[in-house]
């Protein structure tokens, strides 16, 4: 899944699950779109209702307005004759926003280990994402090591170690309260000594408004770069899809402080639609790497704009 040719059946299964999960709970756009325009004609009222649906999906006011104004232009040109045309227009607009951020993560080996630094707010799912990512990387034939950089939260190290055991991957850890930069630096040395391909570094969750803790992350980044200028090769923000507009602030602040190179969106299996992804793609040009739609490791897959939009626009039971 990292730039290699993947098995097509695995991918299809994921799209099906994505479609089913995203539409679990209340069925979303397809069903609703048909209901919006019972007579089949599209007018301003239908667009108003659609606007509400987008807002309820956490797309945010600004991005919703962009999408709706695209559609209003089409409506004025009399291009939106029926529900199918509306769906196509909406699809084009959503893809237009998301396609630029669809850039899968590619692992290169520039001599030392490829370092992925995971960051995010408390409870976003960093440790769990590392567990799943480690499993994927191993399946793809990379050697992997984990660095227990969350030295603050009680039992965070043990949680990562549990994932390490599950995937048979080494975990470098120190005692609770240790300097995260030191832990990750040691892990880097260990990874290089053992000729490891990918080092996944966990960090403690922190709110973007806690300046001191954000500085701590900047320090981690500096210290890692001391031995290998190109490291960390990936600074990945883990975002909880059930979050609202603050996720946009999160992305902006973390990007400002660290220069994000990727985003992973977790917990898309709730009834939240993850519309915040659109708001972020609309504002920031940071690649979206993976989306997670469930507890199992295979429920995390590379982000594909088309599939995601399809999943939003097609209900679980139906085909495309």
């Amino acid at each position: 899944m990292f730039g290699k040719k993947e098995k097509p059946e695995k991918r299809d299964g994921f799209i099906k699950r994505l479609r089913a999960r995203i539409n679990r709970g209340d069925s979303w756009l397809t069903y609703d779109l048909a209901n919006l325009a019972p007579g089949g004609t599209i007018d301003e009222d239908v667009l108003d209702e659609l606007e509400a649906l987008l807002v309820m999906a956490d797309v945010g006011v600004e991005t919703t307005e962009r999408i709706i104004s695209d559609l209003q232009k089409s409506l004025a040109r009399k291009e939106l004759k029926d529900v199918a045309a509306l769906r196509n227009g909406l699809r084009a607009s959503l893809c237009g926003i998301l396609a630029p951020v669809e850039k899968p993560l590619s692992i290169e080996k520039p001599g030392g280990p490829f370092v992925i630094l995971m960051v995010g707010v408390n409870g976003a799912g960093k440790t769990t994402t590392i567990g799943k990512l480690a499993r994927h990387l191993k399946d793809d034939g990379y050697s992997v090591m984990l660095a227990a950089g969350d030295t603050f939260r009680a039992a965070a190290v043990e949680q990562l170690q549990a994932w390490g055991e599950r995937n048979d991957v080494a975990v470098i850890a120190q005692q609770a309260g240790a300097d995260p930069a030191a832990v990750i630096f040691d892990a880097w040395e260990a990874a290089r000594a053992r000729n490891i391909d990918v080092l996944l570094a966990d960090t403690a969750g922190r709110l973007q408004s806690q300046t001191g803790l954000m500085d701590e992350l900047a320090k981690v980044k500096r210290v890692v770069a001391r031995r290998d200028e190109s490291a960390p090769h990936e600074i990945m923000l883990v975002l909880d899809a059930s979050q609202g507009q603050n996720a946009l602030v999160q992305a902006e602040k973390f990007h400002e402080a660290l220069g994000l190179t990727g985003i992973t969106v977790t917990k898309l299996d709730g009834s939240a639609k993850g519309g915040i992804l659109l708001a972020i793609a609309n504002r920031l040009n940071v690649p979206v790497r993976f989306i997670g739609i469930g507890e199992a490791a295979e429920d995390m897959q590379p982000f594909a704009a088309d599939d995601f939009v399809d999943a939003l626009l097609t209900s679980g039971g139906q085909g495309k």
Partner: peptide, 12 residues
């Protein structure tokens, strides 16, 4: 509940 939660929090 997380104070950063989005629209779906009402459903939860």
């Amino acid at each position: 509940v997380d104070s950063m939660a989005g629209q779906d929090a009402v459903n939860a």
